[in-house]
Nucleic acid binder design. Structure first.
Lengths: 144, 144
DNA sequence: TGTTATAATGATAATGAAAATCAAAATCAC
DNA sequence: GTGATTTTGATTTTCATTATCATTATAACA
């Protein structure tokens, strides 16, 4: 399997928390790992349900929450109010460039910006933990 | 009045949109302008209702939306899902430093970061419009 | 200053996302 | 296998925001 590491992380997390394995949790994890897009809970639910028709909506919510807790997943709350989820494991930290016309987005990192962000936090007496940065604009395609 | 400019902006906006003035809109605007905090709709409603007890919840929602449209107000969606509103007029663009313990936050700007953000957007073929940046960490007080 | 067309209001219902509830089913240590 | 405990899925609840709609207010104009 290509996702051995991720599966291990999830299993370990379940164990340390005294939680149990289940077909549903495994199914949601598999779908999540197999799709490298920023899915919403609803999209995840629809796809996972194909392989396991009895799957419930609530279970997807519960599982995605566990994935976030164990560090495999990051929740992104966009300005339009929707939440989407992206892979965290094996993906370095990054920020987003988002097209305001078509919604397309790109993952970006600028080490210099990262450095300056750290500096700024410390300058204000903050011990930095994490950050989010989204740049909104119009992409090449939409500008034409 | 100290808020002449802001009131003018709002009135002009209403006119260009073919909308009407009203006591309620004026009341919500006044409260919004008089409090330099990041209020939620609910907080705004409670305060404005004191001066105009017949004020309805929906009107506050509608008015705050107009304030955002005319550039007096900016909506901030925080990670906890709540929306809060901050003054935009006469306040330069800024980002936020947010304490993950106590929720306190500070407005910050780093011109160098701003410049690098522009550069990064352009580097990816984006015509930058705006951005949001939030740095999360633990503030001095909470760290002790 | 009326008249009148149009927009705004406020009470309430509708919506939609996320969380809570709970009986039945699944898991796993023994 | 047994039994304590957790998970599940269907459903309800919650809560923020929007939509609806009859009534009221606004403002251009006679």
């Amino acid at each position: 399997m290509t996702n051995d590491n991720e599966e291990k992380i999830f299993e370990d997390y379940l164990e340390t928390q005294g939680l149990k394995h289940s077909r549903q949790r495994k199914g949601v994890l598999d779908v999540f790992l197999s799709i490298d897009k920023h899915l919403s809970v609803d999209e995840l639910y629809r796809i996972a349900k194909k392989k396991n028709p009895s799957l419930g909506y609530a279970t997807v919510y519960r599982t995605i929450k566990l994935l976030c807790e164990c560090g495999l997943c990051r929740e992104l709350r966009f300005e339009d109010g929707t939440s989407r989820y992206e892979h965290l494991y094996g993906h370095r930290h990054h920020d987003h460039l988002i097209c305001t016309k078509c919604g397309r987005f790109v993952e970006v990192v600028d080490p210099e910006i990262e450095r300056l962000q750290e500096r700024m936090a410390k300058l204000h007496g903050f011990y930095p933990e994490r950050h989010r940065m989204e740049l909104y604009g119009i992409c090449k395609r939409c500008k034409k």
